[in-house]
């Protein structure tokens, strides 16, 4: 836990059950505080672009590589499950919908969580330990606006784009392996993907990605801000940020599935 920073005397805030009860509220209050931070938008823009470059464009190589394997594995597994039972174009349908609805948002989210939430927690944690965050605060510079807002927005905006990249690369790779090794003609696979494509699937995946991005950015900043105890504290914060991001991704994934896709 990052340390409850709701206005409580330290004697109360250090009681374990108080911490546990208040942690979700504290986490959400941190997100609201960061997103609602007052200030001149023009000053935040360059920092947002820098963070978007770092956490969005910087993640592209690893996202492309993992997307290739997502596509390959999904095609092989879907073919294994369906071949001989239903027409071949169902493999294209299965791959397309599985990737759009579930695999692209969740796996891309987990990769970005491992990459960005940990980096944010470590960076902000080091700043906390070296009193740089205190320095901002005492100067009258809102640290939530200066540090958290650009990072949280960067992951919320960057992740949906990365998810679309994953979808395109994974489906294309699945098409290649299906046509070359699984005895499914490209036209049949493409028919399955396009004929059963639903806008709702795509929108659902993007909505998930935006929420995952918010949670990943917030987890990294939340634990980074809460660091105490030097290098050991930074290590703990980094681990916690990734673990919480992954758990919340799966939790929100279920909630969105229930809302969007529950028939």
């Amino acid at each position: 836990m990052a340390g409850v920073s709701i206005d409580l005397p330290s004697s109360k805030a250090n009681i374990p059950w108080v911490k546990v009860l208040l942690a979700p509220i504290d986490y959400l209050a941190f997100l609201v505080r960061s997103l609602a931070a007052p200030g001149y938008p023009g000053r935040t823009w360059p920092r947002f672009v820098a963070q978007l470059w770092n956490h969005g464009v910087g993640a592209l190589p690893v996202i492309v590589v993992t997307s290739v394997f997502i596509g390959l594995t999904t095609a092989v597994q879907t073919s294994y499950q369906l071949m001989g039972v239903v027409p071949k174009y169902f493999v294209g349908m299965g791959v397309g919908r599985l990737v759009l609805i579930e695999l692209a948002p969740v796996l891309t989210g987990c990769i970005v969580a491992g990459r960005s939430a940990s980096a944010m927690a470590a960076e902000l944690g080091a700043m906390r330990v070296s009193e740089q965050i205190d320095a901002l605060e005492v100067m009258g510079v809102d640290p939530y606006r200066y540090l958290c807002l650009p990072r949280i927005l960067a992951t919320a905006v960057g992740l949906p784009v990365l998810v679309v990249v994953t979808e395109v690369v994974a489906v294309f790779t699945a098409l290649l392996i299906s046509a070359s090794m699984l005895n499914i003609p490209a036209s049949v696979f493409t028919y399955g993907v396009t004929h059963f494509f639903m806008v709702r699937d795509f929108i659902g995946g993007i909505v998930k990605a935006v929420l995952f991005g918010l949670l990943i950015g917030n987890s990294g900043c939340y634990y980074g801000f809460g660091v105490h105890g030097g290098a050991q504290g930074v290590g703990r914060a980094t681990t916690n940020a990734v673990v919480l991001s992954a758990v919340l991704i799966l939790l929100v994934d279920f909630v969105i599935a229930f809302i969007f896709f529950n028939t």
Partner: peptide, 13 residues
Amino acid sequence: GGIGYVFQGGALF
């Protein structure tokens, strides 16, 4: 009215 704070380690960015 504004506080200037000189941290022991400098706390420079």
